[in-house]
């Protein structure tokens, strides 16, 4: 564990808390992509299968259970409140996730991490590719609506920050731990890059106290 990884995990936990707080405080799931949340649940299921295979640390196991639990809890809450959005979710959450699923599966089958062709390893690789693009339905939705509640915006920012910190962690581990995972690094760069436009708007608008509106 190093400081970057710890900050990454904390940003990830913060993003989940912000999302749940947004739903609670506005009593609405308007502006939140159900598809993105469903993809994250699938990411955690396919990645954390190893929780049954080996033990890393109490921290590791607890966080895996936390991420799995909160992702399904979020889906449950969103489903319950599905009619509370001012705009019906199905008219705006229209990103075609089939392409993300098929693309991620194809990449995992062609380039499994460490070239180990086991079911668990292919699913692990799939989860990394899928996570790298899982935010797209959410960003697509944001672009269509053009504006968002501040908690939603903070949620997306914390989520983007999380993988950005992981990239720093991987650079650190390459030099100081003699450890490197090409799959993690490449997907992490893609994931962080997808947020780059969003980060810029966040900096320009939110940090300067203006309402979040896309130009």
């Amino acid at each position: 564990m190093n400081i970057f990884r710890f900050l990454a995990d904390m940003s990830h936990v913060l993003s989940i808390l912000l999302l749940l707080q947004k739903i609670r405080s506005s009593n609405s799931v308007a502006g939140i992509s159900f598809k993105t949340q469903a993809l994250y649940a699938l990411v955690f299921v396919t990645r954390y299968l190893d929780v049954f295979i080996y033990f890393v640390s109490i921290y590791n196991t607890a966080m895996k259970i936390l991420f799995l639990g909160t992702s399904f809890y979020t889906l449950h809450v969103m489903y319950k409140k599905r009619d509370s959005g001012t705009i019906a979710a199905n008219t705006i959450d229209t990103f075609r996730v089939e392409f993300l699923l098929i693309g991620s599966l194809a990449l995992a089958l062609i380039f499994p991490s460490e070239r180990i062709y086991s079911v668990t390893n292919i699913l692990w690789t799939f989860s990394l590719w899928l996570e790298s693009v899982a935010i797209l339905p959410q960003l697509f939705m944001l672009q269509r609506t053009g504006q968002a509640e501040s908690l939603t915006v903070h949620y997306i920012f914390a989520l983007g920050l999380y993988r950005g910190f992981y990239v720093l962690n991987w650079i650190y581990r390459y030099y100081f731990d003699n450890w490197f995972s090409l799959t993690s690094f490449v997907t992490g760069i893609i994931q962080t890059a997808l947020y780059s436009d969003f980060f810029w708007v966040y900096y320009q608008k939110v940090l300067k106290g203006k309402k979040f509106e896309l130009p």
Binding site: D9, N60, K64, Y117, S118, N121, N169
Partner: peptide
């Protein structure tokens, strides 16, 4: 099935 390398990150 070949062994899975231990993955310690989340």
């Amino acid at each position: 099935e070949p062994p899975l390398p231990k993955k310690d990150e989340l």
